[in-house]
Simulated scan of single mutants.
Amino acid sequence: MITLFGSGQSRSFRCLWALEEAGLDYQYQAVAIGSDQENGTRTEEYLKMNSQGKVPTFVHDDLVLTESASIVNYIGSLAPEHNFIPSELVARAQYDQIMFFVMADMEQPLWTNGKHRFAIPQEHRVPNIIPTTHWEFAKSLKALEKLKGEQTFICGEQFTFADIMVAQTLIWAERFEYTIPENWVTYLRQMQERPAYQKAMEAIQ
């Protein structure tokens, strides 16, 4: 049995979208981030699964994973027939490069923004850092542009789970009102038209 604990369009949405793309049976449990009340991420029961009290938390039988990119890759491995994760050596290396780029570079300005606007205690926030995060994100998109080139999808002419990682991060950027070039907006809208994305959206309503 697969159970995904998540909240809205946080990082857990990547995992939810991947589950829908893979066509796997799962249960989705919405949780309240930061709450120590029932279904909260700070309850004793939840902290036993995820010691940081964050989302996502992914449970498959005895396996517990709490990092979104790792979960997305694991889901892809459960459905190898779809080729969501390339198997050829060079293609897999290029796929991994995008996955690591999203986590280490592309999403970091957005998370820095979130931390210093609402996520961390007031006394630790540095509001003056926000403009720098916009500059960093624009720089990151330029680098991603070179990696993608003229390809339809991030890793070529076939959809992979790297597209989920990039698209969900662009959604995050839209919500935070970052400037996104038109070509990336077009790419994002194409990803949002996928039936699995639509089903994942229905699951969080």
Rank of each mutant, 00 (worst) to 15 (best):
L110F: 08
R92W: 05
L78K: 07
A91F: 00
V126M: 08
K139Y: 05
W135V: 10
P131N: 02
E81T: 11
Q97A: 11
Q97K: 07
T66Y: 03
A104Q: 06
E67W: 00
S70T: 13
N73I: 03
Y95V: 07
H134S: 09
L144R: 04
T132C: 00
P131M: 08
L141I: 09
T152Q: 15
L141S: 06
I75T: 08
A119F: 14
Q94T: 02
D96S: 05
Y95D: 11
L141D: 06
A69N: 12
Q97T: 04
S140G: 11
S70C: 12
T112W: 01
P127H: 03
S77E: 15
Y95Q: 09
T112N: 11
M106K: 02
I85M: 06
I129H: 02
L89S: 14
H134F: 06
I120A: 08
A138H: 04
G76M: 10
R125P: 05
E145C: 05
A138E: 11
H124N: 11
I120H: 07
K139N: 13
R92I: 03
V72D: 03
Q151W: 01
K142Y: 06
T152N: 15
I71N: 00
N83M: 09
Q94S: 06
L110R: 04
L78Q: 10
P109F: 00
K148S: 07
T132I: 02
S77M: 10
Q108M: 15
H124V: 05
I120S: 10
M106Q: 08
W135T: 14
H134Q: 15
A104N: 12
Q108G: 08
A143M: 14
C155H: 02
A143L: 14
S87N: 12
A91V: 04
A104L: 03
Q122H: 11
Q108C: 08
N113F: 11
F118H: 15
T133N: 02
F118L: 12
Q108I: 15
E145G: 09
R125K: 11
L89V: 15
H116W: 00
A119Y: 06
Q122V: 15
L141N: 06
F101V: 02
I85R: 03
L147K: 11
Q151Y: 04
H116L: 00
H82C: 09
L65K: 00
P86Y: 04
H82M: 08
F84H: 14
P86V: 13
T152G: 09
L141P: 01
W135C: 04
Q108K: 13
T66A: 07
I154C: 12
F153T: 11
W111M: 15
F118W: 12
D96I: 03
